[in-house]
Design a protein around this nucleic acid. Structure first.
Lengths: 229, 229
DNA sequence: GTTGAATAGTGATAAATATCACAGAAATTG
DNA sequence: CAATTTCTGTGATATTTATCACTATTCAAC
């Protein structure tokens, strides 16, 4: 899925930036927390932000993680008065923020820009629904496969041995995307390693048999175009 | 969640309708099917449409069902080139359709209308993410409770005995919303009946103890404002 | 490099849920 | 209203997944 800011032409990009303030956050800092008033939409100039929902008792699920040139805060800004999830910096990040009032005024004035926003949110909606399908229809293995496929679409590069994932991935991260226990994810991943479907050096994964995943998830019969993490 | 068309003022509503064509569908008819080219966005004048995703082997999950004055087809129109799900009439329905090109032109011209669309999609995205949370965090019981809460928000009326759901609901319907087996849903619902938490006469349910559901789903600590089916 | 903190792997067990195979109720249809 | 068809309930069983308790490995900081 294309990051929000990369969809825009210079003019529209300029309008957004002209009305935004820059801020920096350190790794681990919260940009906003669940329940707080939804006042700003954010853009990522540099870094990575994880948006997640708490589940009580030290657990949480990842709603999505967003990277350079993407935005976040749309759940909140466009869907109610308060954020229903929390946003935390995965790495030191540079952000721009724009107030709810300003972005609403800009979008009301500029339909073309608004259409990009509608598409951006709609693609995320499609991805969210597809994630439910994968998890529900094909059990934990399907869920883990789904995460790998989504990573391959966002940070995969083709190599002779297979799709190399450029971002470091921990078993725990996968677990939080799909709320399958860490132990179960670990067992599934190791089984696939033995079968030669994937390989890894610690956090660096290579997907050696994408067809295995596509068959498992019956991708041919699935029209989803936005299968992103 | 407010149906799309009810958010619009007369002027904007008029623009949409002036560019739409009316069509009627019979109960059971498909409006579009998964994989087909995403050419139209639809509005419901009368009736009910279920949007669902096939899971192979006669199974499917409900993505959402939409009623009078709402729209559907946004996953497809705004998120890619083909529909990634199917839409089927639950009852005989009267619809309006507008082509992709026309709605895009209208939204590009009319930012205020576009902002309503962005909000509409964003609210659905929030609801989708919240559904994942309920299902994942609180098991099958949480999932079923979540469906009842969502129904109560869309078709519940307050009575002395509790929240009466005006739409008829089958165990099977619940099962398809959350992809928990029909038998498991049946067992959960019957347990709650014994405990006096809900009651029903066939398809007509009354939620006698909403607090039970709210506690189960820890609603107080959840900022989601769009908990709709 | 050593050390302490994160992260991952693994066996045993418990819990949740699906599946299967029917019987019984309710709804629909001619 | 009789006959189908659709929907629901229920026991038995199998499967999946979580949880617990612990060891091993990797990472990060001094």
């Amino acid at each position: 899925m294309e990051p929000l800011l990369e969809r825009l032409d210079k003019h529209d990009y300029g309008i957004l930036m002209a009305n935004s303030k820059q801020l920096s956050v350190k790794k681990g800092d919260f940009v906003f927390e669940e329940g707080s008033s939804a006042d700003h939409l954010y853009f990522i100039q540099q870094g990575e932000i994880r948006v997640f929902k708490k589940l009580g008792s030290n657990k949480d699920i990842t709603i999505f993680s967003r990277n350079k040139n993407d935005g976040f805060g749309e759940i909140g800004i466009f869907s109610g008065n308060s954020y229903s999830n929390s946003a935390q910096a995965v790495q030191d990040s540079k952000l721009y923020s724009i107030t709810r009032q300003e972005i609403e005024e800009i979008l009301a004035q500029n339909g073309r820009l608004g259409l990009h926003f509608t598409r951006w949110v709609a693609e995320n909606l499609e991805a969210s629904k597809a994630k439910i399908r994968d998890y529900i229809a094909f059990g934990s293995e399907g869920a883990v496969a789904s995460v790998f496929v989504r990573y391959s679409n966002t940070c995969g590069i083709v190599t002779p041995e297979g799709i190399q994932l450029t971002d470091p991935i921990m078993i725990q991260d996968i677990s939080k995307h799909i709320a399958v226990s860490r132990e179960t994810v670990s067992r599934i991943v190791n089984k696939w390693k033995e079968q030669g479907i994937i390989d890894n050096q610690n956090k660096h994964f290579i997907l050696k048999d994408m067809n295995y995943f596509r068959r498992l998830l019956v991708c041919e019969q699935c029209g989803v175009e936005n299968c992103a993490i």
